[in-house]
Write a protein that binds this DNA or RNA. Structure first.
Lengths: 120, 120
DNA sequence: ATAGGCTTTGAACCTAGGTTGAAGGTCAAG
DNA sequence: CTTGACCTTCAACCTAGGTTCAAAGCCTAT
């Protein structure tokens, strides 16, 4: 499949696919006689996987390391659980931090409301 | 006060102060005969305010707009409440999104654990 | 044969919030 | 008068994840 076909099928831009290839997130494509990239249809699923992983909070660097590991031998179930657990921790930390901010903002608003009451 | 004095007092780098000036987050400094920046001590409090606001999740752009408004007439209590409320909403949205990610990750982990059980 | 739609490459641009470095001017102490 | 600690400017660099552009080549239909 040509890059445009893959892009349409996966719902991503062609420039993004080339970008992924440059960055080593996906394997370099085979080339036709005219120099055009020629991708296996499997790439569509891989691109969807990347989007999913991004949606869970994985960076392209993290995704790339899994993909590279997948090149030699696919990632084990245990390994996947380990990666997901670590990400779970970092997401939990993010939530905790955001909740701290939320509480501080709420406290400030309450304080300002009171001050407004005092002035009235 | 010279830029280094301000920087030490506020706990920021001098390059950061110059950067803020370039970006219009703080007012351009008066200059001494030698060309050195000469800041009023008030800047220390302003720099601390900026750090606080950043800690609450405000971007420099947002902070700048408040500061600019503060140049003409200081921000009103009502206005502050309005800005904080909007930020509260966006922080709440961030938390909701992160919690969604957290749940999806947890679901995936559970699924993988089960699959591992089946294999055993 | 030519128009339009695809592809190629490389390089520059974008946001955010700075940091780092080079090349030079200034000031106070010893 | 020299050393060291300041200060000045401008410009480039950094992460992250791409997008956009320019100049060129290729392919298919009319």
């Amino acid at each position: 499949m040509k890059i445009g076909d893959i892009a349409r099928a996966a719902g991503v831009t062609t420039s993004r696919i080339r970008f992924y290839e440059r960055r080593g997130i996906i394997a370099p494509a085979a080339r036709g006689a005219n120099g055009y990239r020629d991708y296996p249809a499997d790439l569509i699923a891989i691109l969807r996987f990347i989007e999913q992983a991004q949606g869970l909070g994985f960076s392209l660097k993290e995704i790339a390391s899994v993909e590279v590991a997948g090149g030699a031998h696919p990632i084990s179930c245990d390994e996947a659980i380990r990666l997901l657990s670590r990400k779970l921790d970092s997401v939990a930390a993010l939530i905790a931090e955001a909740e701290g901010r939320k509480r501080r903002i709420e406290a400030l608003i309450a304080e300002l409301r009171e001050r407004r009451q005092d002035a009235a």
